[in-house]
Write a protein that binds this DNA or RNA. Structure first.
Length: 190
DNA sequence: AATATAGCCAACCGCCACTGT
DNA sequence: TACAGTGGCGGTTGGCTATAT
């Protein structure tokens, strides 16, 4: 799959970060024609990208209904709860968080929450070493258990640190907001 | 001020499931 | 039934930014 070459046409496939121009083309095309078969969409839009790449870009970044910005406390708790229930079923979890993508949740989990789990495991290991005798079995045996038992309080603390006004405004300015893109698209005609 | 390290996130890769022929 | 094309998913990586030394 994902062959660089689809047929006799010599079409090179672009990889790497999307440019603003590509974003506009894709957004425009979907606005005019809707989502469809991604491979043919990529071709007909004139993008030198695979259908997969277009789909990913649209779903994870360009969709107008995406929520950007920091994960809220409620969302974090929901993620933890659902992860305890389903494990790494990110897309399933994402369905319960409107405007969030599986990729976003997955990244969030790996970079923030998993860190706390690791820490908790270390503490637990140290604790069982120091307490040692007779305390076997008190340690959480699974990620889910660890999360629910050991991590939640620590994690909750960080929620406060990360949430709301504590986030500097500049952080959000790395992104082209959807308002920007859609207004550019309007300016571009159509 | 320069360099090293850690954290974060967008994007790619590989696999699997589904669908049409 | 077998095969090819496509979509979807989870894991992983590369590069940028922030922070520490």
């Amino acid at each position: 799959m994902d062959k660089t070459q689809s047929s006799s046409q010599d079409v090179e496939v672009r990889k790497g970060p999307w440019t603003l121009e590509e974003d506009l083309i894709l957004t425009n095309h979907i606005a005019n024609h809707g989502e469809g078969v991604w491979n043919s969409l990529a071709r007909s839009a004139g993008l030198k990208r695979t259908g997969k790449s277009c789909r990913l870009r649209w779903l994870n970044y360009l969709r107008p209904d995406l929520r950007r910005g920091n994960i809220t406390h409620e969302e974090q708790l929901l993620i933890m709860e659902l992860h305890a229930k389903w494990g790494n079923r990110w897309s399933k979890i994402a369905k319960h968080l409107p405007g969030r993508t599986d990729n976003e949740i997955k990244n969030y989990w790996r970079t923030r929450i998993q860190k706390h789990i690791k820490r908790a495991e270390t503490f637990a290991a140290l604790g069982s070493e120091t307490n040692e005798q007779g305390s076997s079995g008190s340690q959480a045996s699974s990620t889910a258990e660890l999360m629910v038992t050991d991590c939640l309080p620590t994690y909750h603390g960080d929620v406060e640190a990360f949430s709301g006004e504590n986030i500097p405004q500049e952080l959000n300015e790395n992104y082209w907001s959807m308002e920007d893109l859609w207004s550019m698209q309007l300016l571009n005609g159509d």
